[in-house]
């Protein structure tokens, strides 16, 4: 039983990382109707930016909380800039064309980023220095909660609350939801789709970067293809929750994280990566709109 609880807690931490990534997929899908396959690579660039941030203040020598914050900020700023650039130069020119063009372009951007990073930093994985000394934060019997888990939960929950507040309570969030309904109707109340889409990419990319740093705190290495599998799993989580739904992305991601942790714990960690694909196939077969997907009948 204790092993089960431990696995669920670890899985929920992993799931909350997936959730941060999945939110980016689902938000961009909301405003643009695009599955942004370069999203995982934005996360990867964020992780590399975090590595530069660590080096810039020699954080690995003496980890501090302020230093940790610095790494998050640098990674998130770098990724949001990258997200804005990708949107501006790769997606915006194609926005009025077929959705398929956008999708293919996003795959192209993904390959471009991976290969650019290989040229810049080489293909071999780099060790991400420990920026937080691992300690047991809390322990009941054999269930241990490390400070890694605490940071993971804290960062993702805080970011998700901020996002929830933006989307539900601010004029910006209302504009995002208006655009996800119809670009044309949004224009008629004075909303400029360009600006809102740009901000959506900024927010989504910043969340991905935060997720990237949480990943390297828990699994301390970076490599140019690290975004691929993470992105894919988060994408499946978003589909499981119902793409376009923010609540769905979080629920889907937590489910995925916990299942993955249980499979790795009780079965074999060889199969943990296969889970995403099994889930994807099952969702597409049983309920393609996902758990929270709204298939709204049109009112005539």
């Amino acid at each position: 039983m204790q092993e089960f609880i431990q696995l669920v807690i670890n899985g929920a931490a992993l799931g909350s990382i997936y959730a941060l990534i999945a939110l980016g997929y689902t938000m961009v899908y909301g405003v643009l109707g695009l599955i942004n396959f370069a999203h995982g690579d934005v996360l990867m660039v964020g992780a590399y930016a975090g590595l530069l941030a660590v080096w810039s203040i020699h954080l690995n020598a003496h980890p501090t909380l302020l230093g940790l914050l610095w790494v998050f900020v640098v990674a998130m700023v770098a990724s949001s800039l990258l997200g804005v650039l990708i949107e501006r130069f790769a997606y915006r020119p194609l926005r009025n064309g077929s959705k398929l063009n956008l999708l293919i372009t996003s795959v192209g951007v993904s390959l471009l980023l991976e290969n650019l990073c290989q040229i810049l930093w080489g293909a071999t994985p780099r060790v991400f220095p420990s920026i937080l000394n691992q300690e047991i934060f809390f322990k009941v019997d054999h269930v241990a909660i490390t400070n890694y888990l605490v940071v993971t939960f804290l960062v993702s929950v805080v970011l998700m609350i901020i996002l929830e507040w933006i989307v539900l309570k601010t004029q910006l969030g209302r504009a995002m939801r208006a655009i996800s309904y119809s670009h044309e109707m949004a224009m008629l109340v004075g909303i400029s789709a360009d600006n809102i889409i740009m901000i959506t990419f900024m927010i989504g990319s910043a969340l991905a970067a935060a997720a990237g740093i949480l990943v390297v705190i828990n699994y301390p290495q970076v490599d140019p293809t690290m975004g691929l599998l993470l992105g894919l799993k988060a994408f499946v989580a978003a589909v499981l929750g119902g793409i376009g739904s923010i609540r769905g992305a979080v629920v889907g991601a937590l489910t995925m994280g916990i299942l993955e942790s249980l499979i790795a714990g009780y079965f074999s960690s060889t199969y943990r990566d296969a889970l995403a694909f099994i889930v994807l196939i099952l969702v597409l077969m049983i309920k393609p709109s996902g758990l929270f997907g709204h298939h709204q009948p049109e009112k005539v």
């Binding site: 939801r177 309904y181 008629l188």
Partner: peptide, 26 residues
Amino acid sequence: LVHCPEGRGIFPNLSVWENLQLGAYS
């Protein structure tokens, strides 16, 4: 210059209050 389109152009996925708020977006 405001255009109230055919089919009303309201946002069905937002509340009435939120629709009114967005009316003042500009």
